[in-house]
Design a binder for these strands. Sequence first.
DNA 1: CTACCTGCAAAAGGTTTGCATAGCC
DNA 2: GGCTATGCAAACCTTTTGCAGGTAG
Lengths: 128, 128
Amino acid sequence: MKYSKQREMILNCIKESHQHLTADAIYDTLKKDHPNLSLGTVYRNLAQLADHGMILKISIPGQPDCFDKNIDDHFHFLCIDCGNVKDVFVDELSEIKSHVEQQANVDIESIDITFKGVCTTCKQKKVQ
Amino acid sequence: MKYSKQREMILNCIKESHQHLTADAIYDTLKKDHPNLSLGTVYRNLAQLADHGMILKISIPGQPDCFDKNIDDHFHFLCIDCGNVKDVFVDELSEIKSHVEQQANVDIESIDITFKGVCTTCKQKKVQ
DNA sequence: CTACCTGCAAAAGGTTTGCATAGCC
DNA sequence: GGCTATGCAAACCTTTTGCAGGTAG
């Protein structure tokens, strides 16, 4: 991967954020200081960074893809009320993986899990 | 839900198939005998049928949504070589659910899991 | 009769791509 | 110098929507 200023900017943007950013959010953020940046470039670089394992691409049904600086095995919880996304960890992961591999006779390379429901904050609002 | 011929056709199409069908596949199939059918109608009815729990909407990242007659809790394995999708079952589901609910202090209403890897057939091809 | 449904076509939204130019090594 | 990356805009693909007319109950 040849160096490019744009890719560096994009990677930094993700690393500095405490959220999961969409391509569009990254574009909007960087566009302020770099008006020539193009959305196509953002997409191309995000794909490359994800391919090289430097960031994680997160696909949640019904939402635009977003990107995560945390590349460890983890999954996401989407609140169906407020739309917030929270990281979650699944202890049983290796068991699940080997069970499914045996059951279906396949080799698993990756697992995506999306939980949907009501988050802490929205739970409290409903009680009130 | 008011009866409609189109909705009946669409539901039958899914029930008679042994695959996961996309809106477009259903449209193409039915279009042969019903040239006036419109793709918008297919989408509207699929959404309704899924809302009423009569079919299951399956979202696999990078693929168009497809629909499943099997509405039981089950998940999907996508072969990254041939693109085939296989149903899989996860025994540890209730454990995972309660662990994550405690860990993140949320109420989980649904879980989507997509496994990606290499299927039986493609595994064999690689050995040869 | 009225509410819901349809077909058609246009629009929306996110993402990819072709092309000519610019930049890294 | 050559190969890769960029900006721009157009294209793409899936899905949704507005509208005027049709159909079930």
